[in-house]
Amino acid sequence: MNDTARTIASDGFVIEPEDRRAIEHERDHYEQPQAACIEALKIVQRRHGWVPDAAIPAIAEVLGVGPADVEGVATFYSLIFRQPVGRHVILVCDSSSCFLNDYEELRDALSAELGIGFGQTTADGRFTLLPVCCLGACDRGPALMIDDCTYGPVAPGDVADLLEGFA
């Protein structure tokens, strides 16, 4: 297969050559190509923000596995987004230590500031709000993650300031 060609699935979804190479590189780390499936989904998500349905057969083709195998995985994992998300994803820890450190107040402050609840995206496409398992930051709860960074403790009064830094 031509290494630099864009992979175009039957319904037109394009995997960029750079992403294709990254997926193939991951594939070589494992005994079987299916193992690179989660990483492939993450690579596509990094470029598009989420994983549209049309990406599934395209990924399957690069890995040489069945589309159903990719789809089954894509719907299982919580960090693979199957709907468009905002430019920034806020993951709020809702586990026990944060709960004991007034997580519910933080959640309500975020909801009020953004005008959305869990699973929703702001109308301007800036933020998506999601709950997440213990972030391993329990010594500084309540904790949350925005994109690749973890913050804590976040008091309800800090929310407006914190979000201001994200365009």
């Binding site: 904790a143 973890t150 913050y151 976040v154 008091a155």
Partner: peptide, 10 residues
């Protein structure tokens, strides 16, 4: 800003 990024600490 008063919120700090999380760093693991012993």
């Amino acid at each position: 800003m008063s919120v700090t990024r999380y760093h693991s600490q012993l």
